[in-house]
Simulated assay, not measured.
Amino acid sequence: MQQKKQLSLFDLSMIVVSLVIGMGVFRTPVNVAAKAQIPELFYLAWFIGGFVAFCGALTYAEIGSRFPVTGGYYKIFSAAYHPSIAFAINCIVIISSAASVAAISIIGAEYLSKIILPIDKQNETYRVTIAITTILVFYFINLLGLKASAKTQNVLTVIKIGMILTLICAVFFGGKTQTITPIFKTANSTLPTWSDYGKALGLCLIAVSFSYAGYAQTINFGGEVKEAKKVIPRSIIIGLTIIVILYLAINYVYVKVIGFEELKSAESIAAILASKIFGPAGFNALSVIIFFSVMGYVNVNLLSNPRAMFAMGEEGALPKIFSRINKKQR
């Protein structure tokens, strides 16, 4: 049965944003700052990471426009190399995505539990229960069809972008004056060489690259995109442009508001920015928004992974039941 073309340019652009932006933007900067040691390397790592991601995005934009099929991430590897290679790569992606969805759901549940649960019930059992319930809710939304899940995804992604833009506004509520000049320290306390800077930059890029990853899964939706040959490349480029701008802006704000030395060991960096804007009530406001924004990552993975499994079912790498399409909800 042929898939119905339902995804617009806006829908697919929002999918790109949610595939990439999870919780990394609220945690990774601390690790990157600690490895960079100086602000110049910190900013350079995020800029280079964004440039490399953009090059990758252009590659997938070209591939997606030439081969717009459902489950494209499987079918492209299968056609270009061998079905066994495609199967192995996609199994890794599906399993790692499942682990990420579980982890992100629990992190989101941690934020929400502090708002909706009394102190005596803020434990692991209740957080896992909230996480499982949340996944099931989005699972049933996806069963209603692509149109319902895409609309849900749009709302969640707009909330996520709005939250990051709000946190960026913390720079206008009083930046922190840097009292300590960051110094690059080597293992033997000698003057750093270009090699030392290069090694530090490499360590930073490992963490940064994970924060920019995920956009490749966009091509799984190729068979359900309106005017796919035009929309797929445009949506990937638009989505990555939004992501790179948001990442560079919020990392500048982290340094400006928190201070670079403090950023190296800070906890809940997003909460610090929220407190600058909303005051003591900032954490509560942020917790609810973060919960809904990270749920966008959960929903988009529930959208993407079944399409890779659908493609495997079509080619016989998985049982044929995986390639069935519901006549009503498609």
Score class of each variant (00 low, 15 high):
residue 91 C to L: 14
residue 92 I to V: 15
residue 94 I to C: 15
residue 95 I to R: 02
residue 96 S to L: 13
residue 96 S to V: 14
residue 96 S to Y: 02
residue 98 A to L: 12
residue 98 A to I: 13
residue 99 A to R: 07
residue 100 S to C: 14
residue 100 S to I: 14
residue 100 S to Q: 13
residue 101 V to F: 04
residue 102 A to P: 07
residue 104 I to G: 04
residue 104 I to N: 02
residue 105 S to E: 04
residue 106 I to T: 05
residue 106 I to Q: 02
residue 107 I to V: 06
residue 107 I to G: 01
residue 108 G to E: 05
residue 108 G to W: 01
residue 110 E to D: 14
residue 110 E to N: 15
residue 110 E to T: 10
residue 111 Y to S: 01
residue 111 Y to C: 01
residue 111 Y to I: 04
residue 112 L to T: 03
residue 112 L to H: 00
residue 113 S to F: 04
residue 114 K to C: 04
residue 114 K to Y: 11
residue 114 K to H: 09
residue 115 I to F: 13
residue 115 I to D: 08
residue 116 I to E: 12
residue 116 I to K: 07
residue 116 I to P: 00
residue 116 I to A: 00
residue 116 I to F: 00
residue 116 I to G: 01
residue 117 L to M: 10
residue 117 L to D: 07
residue 117 L to Q: 04
residue 120 D to C: 04
residue 121 K to N: 06
residue 121 K to G: 02
residue 123 N to Y: 03
residue 123 N to R: 04
residue 123 N to M: 10
residue 123 N to S: 06
residue 123 N to F: 05
residue 123 N to Q: 04
residue 123 N to A: 06
residue 124 E to P: 05
residue 124 E to A: 14
residue 126 Y to G: 01
residue 126 Y to F: 15
residue 128 V to T: 15
residue 128 V to N: 15
residue 128 V to M: 15
residue 128 V to D: 15
residue 129 T to D: 06
residue 130 I to G: 13
residue 130 I to A: 09
residue 131 A to I: 02
residue 132 I to T: 12
residue 132 I to C: 09
residue 132 I to G: 08
residue 133 T to C: 05
residue 134 T to Y: 07
residue 135 I to M: 05
residue 136 L to G: 10
residue 136 L to R: 05
residue 136 L to K: 12
residue 137 V to P: 10
residue 137 V to S: 12
residue 138 F to S: 03
residue 138 F to T: 00
residue 138 F to C: 00
residue 139 Y to A: 11
